[in-house]
Nucleic acid binder design. Sequence first.
DNA 1: CTATTGACATAGTGGTTTAGTAGGTATATA
DNA 2: TATATACCTACTAAACCACTATGTCAATAG
Lengths: 135, 135
Amino acid sequence: MMISTKGRYALRFLADVAEHQGDGFVPLKDVAVRQKISEKYLEIVVKELVKGGLLTALRGKGGGYRLSRSPEEYSVKSILELMEGSLAPVACLESGQNVCPRSNDCRTLPLWQGLDKIISDYLAQFTLADLYGKT
Amino acid sequence: MMISTKGRYALRFLADVAEHQGDGFVPLKDVAVRQKISEKYLEIVVKELVKGGLLTALRGKGGGYRLSRSPEEYSVKSILELMEGSLAPVACLESGQNVCPRSNDCRTLPLWQGLDKIISDYLAQFTLADLYGKT
DNA sequence: CTATTGACATAGTGGTTTAGTAGGTATATA
DNA sequence: TATATACCTACTAAACCACTATGTCAATAG
């Protein structure tokens, strides 16, 4: 398993905000209730989304969150990469990893590179806009 | 990261055995040296391969391991599935998992199902025979 | 028959990740 | 001023990962 609850919750949170924001802000609590996710744990997830610039927050009464951009501008890949750190299927392909000394004659490296590419390409196809509305 | 050292070591072990078995048995130690993998840890990995029927073992002097079938009959997918338990990218798709109660109106489920499929299809394409020899 | 070579078995371990929980502070609105 | 909201720090139980340690069982070579 490669995508944890953190990534999946982020996706569901963003999709829920996209669906409900209208012209105002959506409080975290409302999303937590609708999506049946622990409020406290969601806070941790959402903090990273704010820090990453995906969400704009407003404190105090009437506050909450809204998308910083329009839903079509959020690729699923970029969201998951932010939350999971990396989507690489194997450790040796993780960014910021020192290159494996065996990589020159590694028989399995091309296999992993190919796998990494199809995963990336697949997830880059979708955006937040694909994730809500069509009941 | 979704494929651990266990899966990667298994692949490298099997490929090494395929390459060196000839008509005899390949001792674990030789593979460990060639592949620079901890001998003791490899034992754990290999035990599962024997249990899963992928390898045939012979004890004592002159013993070791050889493939139970010919290399073309080992799909990378089946090897990795055996070692990792599941290749599902998300928990809710893991086999033997009770179905998620939200699955009927889950907006992200089709996304995960699609991802799961392209990963499976990709890994099913390759066999052990693709993983050795062509220096 | 014995020493050696190997597979097989069981248990422990230090570090990291996961999925949270607890309790409090800062800030905006009614 | 009360309330609703975001934000912050810290803790935790459980699982997982990548090993290590210490053996026992079995087959062959001498």
